[in-house]
Design a protein around this nucleic acid. Structure first.
Lengths: 291, 291
DNA sequence: ACACCTTACGCAAGCCGTAAACATA
DNA sequence: TATGTTTACGGCTTGCGTAAGGTGT
């Protein structure tokens, strides 16, 4: 169970191909084959079926562990290595829907305080945001999701990063103004099982909505919220979105959700130990928390 | 950051000696030296001071990460490997104070149900109990600790094990019946900062009591609750213990604690995925939970 | 001087790449 | 037959042990 082997195992699992994984990791196809064979020999269990390449049940379990392990390993390295962070650096990773104008304000204030601050925002998926913070690639993270009111988000276990809620807003079903649903006062999500939904995993992990059986009609793989809103406005399907976002979009109507009780929640992700000093990241975290 | 290197690093950190670590891991002293050197070269940071051997700040941080990583690695291996658990096996790991007669009853009931069940109890420290469950060495774990009422125990992050509370009882200060304190109706822990305490880390992690400055007068390194109670009864010092335990001991008096609010709490540790079936462990968990 | 960690060096095992063999759609 | 994984084999690297060399108490 060398971390090296776990990394190539993950690559194979993700790409679904030995050769693609080899190319991605700059190995030969043969090396990947040997590494997988070594891993299977070590665990005395087949992890993948070949032709087609797919995960066995044991492989599925290993996949979950492996991704966590590799992040924690990187986090450990970052935590030990990180001696003195470059003082003028501030990298914030965030999911698209975690964006809030207040963040812009806080950043602006920060830039007036510290003369030459190089701030950088990076959009990414939720798991990648948490991983980036854990590994020190980002100094701060903002992630979002839909949960029951005041329930924490169920984030993946990754490194020693901690998350605290910083904002909650009502969740609504966003529909085109012309849509019949737009005239409803409120709606129960389970009544909409037959409707078509816009699946935009890179924007909002709709998969995690606490309602099963929602049928995706159109899939959008980009990260731009505007595009998603535009698709909904054009009548391509429904989407659950935070209410403030829908309100600012003229051709969208937000229908309150009667059940299940659902809010859009934003959480700030940070590594406790590394934000005690007066670094820009600590300052920004404080600004966001006590907004 | 090979797991191999992490393991020897931990051994050196624990033993405080390269040669002792080498002996423990069946290496030569030279190999350990080379491994530590490799680790330090990889991380570009000194982890240990030699002569005397002690952890640098970076080493301290790595120690925390390494122990978690190794447990998770073992947990991953166990989770993937564990194909079919031997049906008649049931290993329960527990901390000494997590014992409860109800556990004996549940086990007895289980043995009447399953004809040939080989049950086994293993006493260990709290972290080791969690680790044993995570790695599959134990099927079920019971850990205890002192917290505020209905607060969960702050367990170390180890593997994918989950803990749920199964019992709470009042915490009292146990003193010899002849002790002046025995006549008090109740007592504030912070008033007892000057008293002598019995430090028994293997029985109860008193270090974790939410009160600082308690001065240990006598240290007991065994795991036997009876011995600890006996020491308290003999007047060697005070000890915070669960009230039921003190009540059953004739020569001990339990003085209720007025502040801080404190209870003795027992939690059941288990791996969610592996207890869905009708295995003995799942059965026992259900019996304990719904007692 | 002694205990203990580090360095030098040789050997064995591990690991990757090339290339040929093999399997499946 | 084409695509893609496995096996065979050679060369290089890694990592341990033995033994000699430092270094602080």
């Amino acid at each position: 169970m060398d971390p090296h082997l776990l990394r190539t195992f993950l690559a194979v699992a993700e790409t679904g191909s030995f050769s693609a994984a080899a190319e991605q990791l700059r190995y030969t196809q043969s090396a990947v084959s040997q590494q997988i064979a070594a891993l299977e020999a070590d665990l005395r269990t087949p992890l993948l079926t070949r032709r087609p390449v797919a995960l066995t049940p044991a492989g599925e379990r290993l996949r979950g562990h492996a991704s966590i392990l590799l992040v924690r390993l990187a986090a450990a390295r970052a935590d030990v290595t990180r001696a003195v962070a470059p003082p003028g650096r501030l990298i914030v990773a965030l999911t698209p829907l975690a964006w809030h104008p207040a963040l812009a304000d806080a950043l602006a204030l920060l830039r007036t305080e510290s003369a030459r601050l190089t701030a950088r925002l990076r959009l990414a998926e939720r798991d990648q945001v948490v991983a980036a913070v854990a590994t020190g690639e980002a100094d701060l993270g903002l992630v979002d999701g839909f949960t029951a009111p005041s329930d924490p988000l169920r984030l993946p276990d990754t490194g020693g990063a901690r998350a605290i809620g910083v904002a909650e807003s009502p969740a609504v079903v966003a529909v085109a103004a012309s849509h019949p649903l737009a005239r409803r006062r409120r709606v129960d999500l389970s009544d909409l099982a037959d409707a078509y939904w816009i699946d935009a995993p890179a924007v909002a992990a709709h998969t995690r909505l606490p309602v099963d059986g929602l049928r995706p009609g159109l899939r959008y793989d980009g990260q731009d919220v505007t595009v998603l809103a535009g698709l909904a406005a054009a009548g391509h399907g429904l989407a659950v979105l935070p209410e403030p976002l829908v309100t600012t979009h003229p051709s969208l109507t937000g229908v309150p959700i009667s059940a299940p009780r659902l809010v859009h929640r934003v959480e700030l992700v940070r590594i406790p130990a590394h934000l005690t000093g007066g670094e820009p990241a600590a300052r920004l975290a404080a600004l966001i928390e006590h907004r």
